[in-house]
Design a protein around this nucleic acid. Structure first.
Length: 479
DNA sequence: TTTTGAGTTGTTCGA
DNA sequence: GTCGAACAACTCAAA
C-alpha cells in the first residue's frame, strides 16, 4: 500500500471564493486531501487589520465560503493569531505537506508571506503562491523604459497591449477531506460583527456577501444597467452602478471573472468600455501599491509632506457625521454610514471637501473610509485619497476644487439623492436644496427648516475655503 | 538626450 | 444664459 498523499493547506485571504481561485484549483487537481484555512491575523508584519465595516463583510463572506466548501465535502478551518504560528500548528496536527495561497500585494502581507514561505520551505514544506486578485501581474505591466506607470491612460494602453488575462478556472467538483480533522474556531468567536450597538443591522437588507451574492449582483448589472453605464454612472440618484466593489474587496468574485462575464454577456459599446475602464482603475491602484508599498500613509509626491494641514477634530467629526451644512457632502457621509458604501461621484466631492475645504489631512479621511466602507480596499482606498488630495498618481491640478453646490446641481439636479439621505432639507425646493442657506426665510419656514437647529449652517464658507486651499497648495510650489 | 504632447472626474471670471 | 480662457507649472511616457 502506498502512503496516502499528505494534505494540502489552501490558505484563503482576500480570495473568498472557489471559482477563479488558482490555489483551490491547484490543490484540487493534485487529488489529495485539502484543508481550507482562513486566519484572522492582526499581527505585524501582516495585512492592515480590516475596519469595522469590512469585518462585518468578512464574517458573512466566510460563512458563505464555508457553506460552499461544505457542498464539496470540505470544512473551512478558522483560526486566529500570527499566520506563521497558526500554519505551524496546523501542519503539525495534520501532517500537511504543502501550503498554497493567492498573492496579496500590500506591504504587510508581502513581507509576512515571504518570511513564511522561506521558513516552510526550509523545513521541507512546499509552498506555492498564485495570482488571483488582479487581471495582470504588476511586474509585467511596464513602461518602455522598464519603469512603472504613474499615469492612467498609458497604463490602460499597456494593459490592452498585454493581451487578454487568462480566463477564470472553474470551481472544483469535490475536495478530498483529510484523515485528521483539525479543529476550527467558531465563526462567531472571531467577533467580526458588531454587538451593541449593532450598527450593521441594516447591511443585511442591502448586501449578500459571498460568491453567490456577487454572481447575482453581476448578473443584475449585466442584464440592464451596464448598457447605460457611461451616461448614468455619475448620477448618484440613479440605479446605474454594479455594486460589486465590496465583493471584489474580499474576493467573493475576482476581476477576471468580472471581466470575462462582461465580455461574454454585455453588448459592445460605451457602457461596457467605461465599466472595464473602472475595473482597470482598481487594477492601476493595486499596481501602484505594488511599486509604492507605503501608499497607505505616505504621499507619493514627497513635497506634500510639508503641506500645511490644519487638523481639527471638530471639523473632522462634523464631516464624519454628515453635518457640514453642505447637503451633497452630508448625503454622501450618511449614505456611507447607513449602507457601507458611497456613490463614486459623491466620494470625490466629500473627499475633496474634507481635504480642500476643511484642510484636514487626507490620511484622516482615508482612515474613516477604511473603517466604514464595506468595499475598503488596501490599494484603492489610499490611492483614491491621494488622487483627491493631489499627491497621488495622475492627480488633478491643485486648483481643481469641487464646488459642492455646483456638483450637487449638476449630478443630483432633481435632488433625489440628497432628499433620500438628508431628510431635514427634503422639503426644500430643488432650487435651494443644495444650498439651504441661500433660501429666503419664508421658503425655509415652509420647508420646516431652521438652519442651525434642524440642519447645520455651512461649517465653512465656500469661497473663503477655496481661496485658503489655493493658498495652501500654492505654498508647496517649488520656487 | 532632448523634445513633444498630454494629463478621469473642475471652477471662476469676464466678455 | 452661454462661452472660452485662465488657473501653474510639472511630470510622465514615448519618440
Amino acid at each position: 500500500m502506498p502512503k496516502p498523499a499528505p494534505p494540502v493547506i489552501v490558505w484563503f485571504r482576500r480570495d473568498l471564493r472557489l471559482a477563479d481561485n488558482p490555489a483551490v484549483a491547484r490543490a484540487a487537481a493534485a487529488g489529495g486531501p485539502v484543508i481550507p484555512l482562513f486566519i484572522l491575523d492582526e499581527g505585524r508584519p501582516g495585512p492592515r487589520p480590516p475596519g469595522a465595516a469590512s469585518r462585518w463583510w468578512l464574517h458573512h463572506s466566510l460563512k458563505s465560503l464555508a457553506a460552499d466548501l461544505e457542498n464539496l465535502g470540505a470544512r473551512l478551518i478558522l483560526r486566529r493569531g500570527a499566520a506563521s504560528k497558526v500554519l505551524d500548528a496546523l501542519i503539525a496536527e495534520t501532517g500537511a505537506g504543502a501550503v498554497l495561497w493567492n498573492r496579496c500585494h500590500d506591504k504587510g502581507s508581502t513581507e509576512r508571506d515571504a518570511a513564511i514561505a522561506r521558513d516552510l520551505q526550509a523545513r521541507g514544506i512546499r509552498t506555492e503562491c498564485l495570482d488571483a486578485s488582479l487581471l495582470f501581474d504588476p511586474r509585467e505591466i511596464r513602461t518602455k523604459a522598464g519603469g512603472w506607470f504613474k499615469v492612467y491612460s498609458p497604463f490602460w494602453d499597456a494593459c490592452g497591449a498585454a493581451g487578454d488575462p487568462p480566463p477564470p478556472v472553474p470551481a472544483p467538483d469535490t475536495l478530498a477531506a483529510p484523515a485528521v480533522r483539525p479543529g476550527s474556531d467558531a465563526l462567531d468567536d472571531l467577533t467580526l460583527t458588531p454587538r451593541s450597538p449593532d450598527w450593521a443591522a441594516g447591511f443585511s437588507d442591502l448586501w449578500t456577501p459571498g460568491a453567490a451574492g456577487a454572481a447575482a449582483r453581476l448578473a443584475r448589472f449585466l442584464d440592464g444597467p451596464v448598457a447605460d453605464y457611461a451616461d448614468r454612472r455619475d448620477f448618484p440618484g440613479m440605479p446605474a452602478i454594479s455594486g460589486l466593489s465590496p465583493h471584489l474587496a474580499w474576493g467573493d468574485i475576482g476581476p477576471r471573472q468580472v471581466r470575462h462575464a462582461v465580455m461574454e454577456r454585455a453588448a459592445a459599446g460605451e457602457g461596457r468600455e467605461k465599466f472595464l475602464k473602472e475595473l482597470a482603475w482598481r487594477e492601476f491602484a493595486h499596481h501602484v501599491m505594488f511599486h509604492f508599498p507605503d501608499l497607505t500613509d505616505t504621499p507619493m509626491d514627497a513635497k506634500f509632506r510639508a503641506f500645511p494641514w490644519e487638523p481639527d477634530d471638530r471639523l473632522l467629526t462634523a464631516w464624519q457625521r454628515g453635518r457640514t451644512g453642505y447637503p451633497i457632502v452630508d448625503a454622501g457621509m450618511r449614505e456611507l454610514w447607513a449602507t457601507g458604501t458611497m456613490h463614486n461621484r459623491v466620494r470625490m466631492v466629500a473627499a475633496s471637501f474634507l481635504v480642500k475645504h476643511l484642510l484636514q489631512p487626507w490620511q484622516a479621511g482615508e482612515a474613516w473610509f477604511w473603517d466604514t466602507l464595506l468595499d475598503a480596499d488596501p490599494a484603492s482606498n489610499p490611492f483614491n485619497w491621494q488622487w483627491v488630495a493631489g499627491c497621488g498618481a495622475d492627480a488633478a491640478p491643485y486648483f481643481r476644487i469641487f464646488n459642492p453646490v455646483l456638483q450637487g446641481g449638476k449630478f443630483d439636479g432633481d435632488g433625489t439623492y440628497v432628499r433620500r439621505w438628508v431628510s431635514e432639507v427634503a422639503a426644500l425646493p430643488k432650487k435651494y436644496l443644495h444650498a439651504p442657506w441661500t433660501a429666503p426665510q419664508d421658503v425655509l419656514v415652509d420647508a420646516g427648516v431652521t438652519l442651525g437647529r434642524d440642519y447645520p449652517e455651512p461649517v465653512v464658507e465656500h469661497k473663503w475655503a477655496r481661496d485658503r486651499a489655493l493658498a495652501a497648495f500654492k505654498s508647496l510650489r517649488r520656487d
